[in-house]
């Protein structure tokens, strides 16, 4: 059971991390921006799911359903990207 303080603290972390993320990317500190922003987004998503969606309080079965979906998305993205990345572009005249 979350109380008001927890909600506000999570919110503050979310807002802070979003601002920091934008600053890090725009000032060019991040080496691999794509990996960086994806990790930040995953972190924020986890916070939102656990606290605002109250996934913390759910049983393993409910958790598994959401995490299963997320894992399948990763599989889809990895397969789509790795399969296409070595293709040779060519346009016949």
């Amino acid at each position: 059971m979350a109380d008001a303080k927890t909600y506000i603290a999570v919110w503050a972390v979310l807002v802070g991390s979003a601002l920091a993320e934008a600053w890090v990317v725009l000032s060019g500190i991040a080496v691999n921006t794509l990996a960086f922003v994806t990790s930040v987004a995953l972190f924020q998503s986890a916070l939102i799911a656990l606290f605002f969606q109250h996934l913390r309080e759910e049983s393993f079965a409910i958790k598994g359903m959401g995490i299963g979906g997320a894992a399948l998305v990763v599989v889809l993205i990895v397969a789509a990207v790795t399969s296409v990345i070595s293709c040779t572009p060519y346009f016949p005249q």
Binding site: I62, M65, G66, I77, A80, V81, V84, I85, P89
Partner: peptide, 30 residues
């Protein structure tokens, strides 16, 4: 929650289209 799992897949599909298009070497030429 079941509905949310399907929503994850909806947005995941759009996201995979995003990554696919960004990494597709054909797009860079085209």
């Amino acid at each position: 929650w079941v509905f949310i799992a399907s929503e994850v897949m909806v947005f995941g599909s759009i996201l995979s289209a995003y990554f696919f298009i960004r990494f597709n070497p054909v797009g860079k030429v085209l």
